[in-house]
């Protein structure tokens, strides 16, 4: 029984085992349907999500678990019960894990103080999105056959990205050459990061990389105040047919077409790994359930 609150609290062996398991699930034609039989997983999303929620649910169901989705809008959290009373009460019903997404950084970590039932972080504020980073790692491993010493560039709103944060911790574990790029208002200061290069030109950011990862411009998270317009963002920070490097392209989704990545690249570029990321997401989350519950 283990929590998964972030990549920051994992070690190399944890990550390697999760990746191995994900590949095993992907390669096998079955044999995992009983692994979580009789187990119940409670999923609570305080923020809207389609793919992450569906991916977790599908992973759990493929392994034979029951999934209960709690609708935040109708839950007692809205009736004034404290967060920790809710988790204590739900824990008293003895579910086998919680999958939680919340708009506040540190929310899953906070809940771990009140329950021993595994808390699986499905994204917390602008802190971490560990299952996304792990499924990205699975996808990277799949095409490069290693995670060691990769050259990775992440482009977009780094400061407000939980995905970038999780990758930053992953980079430390596997000795990546990690680069951040984006409008200055979306980048951390140099002294806030060690071992991460902050690039100032798109062409430098795109050159000589194993993977280029674009982040969603999250207009719902006030990213809009940090850039003048989506049009300008696309022109100076977006991936287009005319600046396309011969490098694998990733994106945690959902993609704003013609903002982060042009439609042509989305539809025709053969090194676009975005669909593969989504596919691997289910196997990775199966491996996460195995890591936390078994």
């Amino acid at each position: 029984m283990k929590h998964l609150v972030g990549i920051k609290s994992l070690n190399r062996e944890d990550v390697e085992r999760i990746i191995d398991d994900a590949f095993r699930f992907k390669a096998s034609k079955g044999g995992f349907e009983q692994l979580l039989q009789g187990k119940t997983i409670i999923s609570i999303f305080f923020e809207s999500s389609t793919r992450t929620r569906t991916s977790f649910e599908m992973a759990a169901k493929r392994m034979g678990a029951q999934v209960i989705n709690i609708d935040y809008n109708q839950s007692s959290l809205k009736k004034g019960e404290t967060d920790y009373d809710t988790i204590i009460n739900l824990s008293a019903m003895h579910p086998d894990a919680f999958v939680i997404r919340h708009y506040e950084s540190g929310y899953p970590k906070f809940l771990t103080e009140f329950t021993n039932i595994p808390i699986i972080n499905a994204g917390d504020g602008i802190n971490e999105h560990p299952s996304q980073a792990l499924l990205d790692a699975v996808t990277m491993y799949e095409v490069k056959n290693t995670l060691e010493n990769l050259k990775v560039c992440i482009i977009g709103d780094i400061i407000h990205s939980r995905v970038a944060k999780s990758h930053m911790w992953l980079a430390k574990l596997f000795n990546w050459e990690l680069t951040f790029f984006g409008p200055k208002t979306m980048l951390p200061k140099n002294e806030w990061v060690d071992g991460v290069r902050i690039e100032s030109q798109l062409k430098d950011a795109l050159s000589n990389k194993d993977f280029i990862m674009f982040l969603r411009i999250q207009l719902e998270r006030k990213s809009g105040q940090n850039i003048p317009s989506l049009k300008e963002f696309n022109r100076f920070f977006g991936l287009k047919r005319d600046n396309l490097p011969d490098t694998f392209v990733m994106h945690p989704g959902p993609v704003n077409r013609n903002v982060e990545i042009d439609s042509w690249v989305m539809d025709h570029f053969d090194k676009n790994l975005i669909t593969k990321q989504v596919e691997n997401g289910v196997y990775t989350r199966m491996a996460i359930f195995k890591h936390c519950l078994l």
Binding site: S105, G106, N127, P188, V193
Partner: peptide, 11 residues
């Protein structure tokens, strides 16, 4: 505002 805030995902 600084490294700790960035690493913890806090404004």
């Amino acid at each position: 505002d600084g490294r700790i805030a960035f690493e913890l995902g806090l404004k």
